[in-house]
């Protein structure tokens, strides 16, 4: 999805459950929560608030 990163809710090293919100994006003036596809530990975050992102761009890595 094309849009802007509004908030990053987790930090590298945080443990997340499947479907837990990691990032909140803004697209078409609405907030869209981006959730973890699986449970694990956040290994890398490639997005920060205010950044514009493209479709298919990886935003975070979970291990």
């Amino acid at each position: 999805m094309v849009g802007k990163i509004l908030r990053v809710e987790k930090k590298v090293g945080d443990r997340v459950e499947e479907d837990e919100v990691i990032i909140v994006m803004e697209a078409m003036k609405m907030e869209i929560p981006i959730v973890a596809p699986a449970s694990g530990v956040v290994k890398e975050l490639k997005a920060e608030a205010g950044q514009a992102v493209e479709a298919d761009q990886p935003l975070a890595q979970i291990e």
Partner: peptide, 23 residues
């Protein structure tokens, strides 16, 4: 526009959090 597209996004994500139908 864009109300009903937003409705679809919200409804879609209600049933499957990993679903992003907005575009």
């Amino acid at each position: 526009f864009p109300m009903s597209a937003r409705v679809v996004q919200v409804e879609g994500q209600k049933y499957n959090k990993k679903n992003y139908l907005l575009m």
